[in-house]
């Protein structure tokens, strides 16, 4: 099924620019404010998704599929990053019994 293009029904590209910017800012605030390292990784995923949303919006707006292929690759890299990041966290938790980023400076040799 092919839906009509949303950009012909009154929604302008500005709407998605604002939405993606707000989502990115929320993710950045989360990275700055939260102390739990797992929540930090989740906020990074939120920022990646804001960028994905904007890329899909522009891809649809310009009528080219290349942007959506790039979103696909961003998802691939995000999956790899989450795996390695979480295993590093599990490792760090075994050593210092905490996921508080404030305590991670104990890892200094």
């Amino acid at each position: 099924m092919v839906l009509a293009s949303i950009f012909e029904s009154g929604v302008s590209i500005d709407f998605y620019i604002v939405l993606a910017s707000v989502l990115f800012a929320i993710g950045a605030v989360g990275v700055l404010v939260r102390r739990n390292a797992i929540v930090l990784l989740m906020c990074i995923e939120l920022m990646l998704n804001a960028v994905n949303l904007l890329m899909v919006a522009f891809s649809t707006y310009h009528g080219k599929g290349d942007g959506q292929v790039f979103v696909f690759f961003i998802m691939v890299v995000a999956a790899a990053e989450a795996t390695v990041g979480l295993s590093i966290l599990v490792m760090a938790y075994r050593n210092i019994r905490s996921t508080d980023v404030g305590i991670f400076n104990k890892l200094k040799g």
Binding site: L3, S5, E8, S59, T60, G63, K64, Q68, V69, F72
Partner: peptide, 18 residues
Amino acid sequence: QAVESANNNGLVENLGEL
């Protein structure tokens, strides 16, 4: 910019080819 109505870029067929 004229966005052609109902562009099919997001479908599996076109993305897969790309």
